[in-house]
Design a binder for these strands. Structure first.
Lengths: 147, 147
DNA sequence: CTTTACTCTAGTCTAGACTCTAGGGTGTAT
DNA sequence: ATACACCCTAGAGTCTAGACTAGAGTAAAG
């Protein structure tokens, strides 16, 4: 009972893998269509049949999404894993993503500083007339930093 | 020559306002459709006719976009300006946006720290086997921070 | 008068990641 | 036998902020 145990894996239908991975059934089918999941086996009546590894793959995708990767990028990462790429290839993807994230953080920090200043400059009471926030948008005082 | 000078404003066609505001003609029409710009006067042949104030309004929109506001939010701000809202209403919009920006910055910083660590943990040479980046995605070591 | 530049409407397309719909078949419990 | 949950396909719809297209009319310059 050592070899030939390929059939022992529990067979899961789409609802079960989806639930186990915390995604919707639609999402599982959508990922299949996008090539992130291989076409699964089918039952006689056409039901998709999965095993545990699909849940792991869905978790991989979820974690990668949590780190900011797009589905296209995740597909590249999965391909490197499946077909055995190089560490350098992986690093080039993550490195690019890291730069992207850094640029986005800088943008948002810039927005935060301008908006934070405007927000604290505004008394918050009375009519909109003379509101420093609106004035800044009208006059363009903030152009240097936000456009 | 003091009163009744409403007609003196230079009349601009869509291409001119678009150019002056640094947006495309499509964008001007799109904003009109979205209600960000009022329906302009039309020439006998149906051309949209604008005056200077439209350029200012487009600049307002551009600056607000630069601060991270969506077109829907910008519409609210413009309404407050047009119909005379209160400073409190303006502040509630900008305050919410500020919080949103802060949350997004935190998300991105979290991603950056996880990804930065993984990226520097990976030697970058050799096959993908044992790559700490891929391993983290497979094993879920990063779940605490990225999902 | 002709060329070139501009404008009009209505509609389609993009990216990203799903989500939903319609109209049907399957499986199991009572 | 029938109710109910589950599954199937194909395709359309969602959101954001426009970009682009076709086919046609208009304006200004030479």
């Amino acid at each position: 009972m050592s070899a030939m145990n390929a059939q022992i894996q529990p067979i899961l239908k789409i609802g079960a893998v989806a639930k186990a991975a915390g995604v919707s059934i639609d999402t599982v089918r959508f990922y299949e269509g996008r090539g992130l999941l291989p076409s699964p086996q089918r039952s006689a009546s056409g039901y998709r049949l999965y095993d545990q590894s699909t849940i792991e793959r869905l978790n991989f995708i979820g974690r990668a999404k949590g780190l900011g990767f797009t589905l296209n990028e995740i597909m590249l990462l999965l391909d490197l894993q499946d077909k055995g790429g190089s560490k350098a290839e992986v690093k080039s993807i993550t490195g690019a993503k890291l730069e992207q994230i850094e640029r986005k953080i800088e943008d948002l920090q810039r927005m935060r500083s301008v908006l934070g200043k405007l927000n604290s400059d505004c008394s918050g009471s009375g009519s909109v007339t003379g509101c420093p926030i609106i004035e800044a948008l009208v006059d363009g005082d903030s152009d240097d930093c936000c456009k």
